[in-house]
Amino acid sequence: MRETSLAFGPDGNLVGTVCVPGGAHRANVGMVLFNAGLVHRIGPHRINVRLARSLASTGIPSIRFDLSGQGDSGRRTGAESFDEQVFRDIASAMDALGRESGASRFSLFGFCSGGVHGFAAAQRDARIAGLLLYDTYFYPTVLSRLNRYALSIRDRGLVVAASDWIRRKLAKRPAGESAPVGANGTESFRTPSRAEFAEVVLRLVARGSKVGVIYSGSFNGYNYAGQFHDTFRRWRFGPRVTCDYLPSLGHSTTILSDQQALIELIVEWTRELDAFLRDANAPP
């Protein structure tokens, strides 16, 4: 395994570390890792570093980098929007990883809000063959709502749970009003509707990509294993779209065994993607 830290991008403002496996094995996919919220490229509790090294041990290269203005990366000089800047940053990271490792197809892992950047980039760059979203978008179902009420009553008692429910209903947005954009005013932080999400996923699958979603046990918004399947049943995603629900996993992966469980899941998912791309590229 070889790690190289470098400045890259058109302005040379981006900082990242490429992790390339040792040996002559040539991977079919490279993993791109970036910021989770305010945390710099090493990820929460350094999880991106350990993930990168685990991937390298199975022959898969990666880059972990800071988006413009975050972590160690400087600001871009251009006047493009935040969303456009993020897209260009991710494209630059794929260029850099390609130069260092020879990979020409890539997978993005988005931790929490980092997933919205991956979701947006995957729609625009056909080099992205894999998209993995961790606790990014939540879509309730009838059963998840019932579960949520039951959990609320169990944890806080009927009176408190009911008064909270009434308060939330009174504060609810008027019907037809769209969900607000993110706190920074960017469109990309909006949760896409079910139909929008499904449409994007189907487009990615049609071009040969793999999409995965992972949910921890930390949020009431996702609370049973089949929730994703129930939400998108009518779109018939097929085997190229995966959902893993890890109810014993804490979102922030503060416990070391939680970190290991998430890393193992991502490595296995990426190895399957690598094998799929290898088979797809094999001569007849």
Partner: peptide, 30 residues
């Protein structure tokens, strides 16, 4: 805090059984 905002009973028990003190870890680090 991790066990306070949980979604499932399984998660409750997981956090109850995990040693609360940092025998070998502290805030996500060994």
């Amino acid at each position: 805090a991790g066990s306070a905002g949980l979604a499932t009973a399984r998660r409750h028990s997981r956090y109850r059984t995990h040693p609360p003190g940092p025998d070998d870890e502290a805030l996500g680090f060994p």
